[in-house]
């Protein structure tokens, strides 16, 4: 993992965090959160923890889906 990749992944994490804080729509916040996860996973893989990377990659979308269920119920009301 060279310096360009480290800087790029750090930029992805920073963009994801800033957008998650600043966006107003809840769906936009969820999309920004998945940009954040996209930036984090290469850091985990670069250390060699492939099992943790697989688990993170599966848990993050599942938590998004549960959040979406709550959002949908609130929209209905």
């Amino acid at each position: 993992m060279n310096e360009v990749v480290t800087a790029g992944c750090a930029l992805l994490v920073l963009f994801g965090t800033t957008l998650t804080i600043c966006e107003r729509n809840a769906f936009d916040k969820l999309i920004s959160l998945s940009v954040l996860v996209a930036g984090v996973i290469p850091f985990i893989v670069a250390r060699g923890y492939l099992d943790i990377a697989t688990a993170t990659a599966l848990i993050a979308p599942l938590s998004t889906i549960f959040t979406l269920m709550v959002l949908f119920r609130r929209q209905e009301r």
């Binding site: 099992d51 697989t54 599966l58 599942l62």
Partner: peptide
């Protein structure tokens, strides 16, 4: 094992987009 990790990440991210768009 990286093939499995990459495929899991890609499928998970696709599933997330699918759920957001469908909602």
């Amino acid at each position: 094992l990286t093939i499995l990790a990459a495929a899991a990440y890609f499928v998970g991210s696709t599933l997330e987009s699918n759920a957001i768009a469908s909602t």
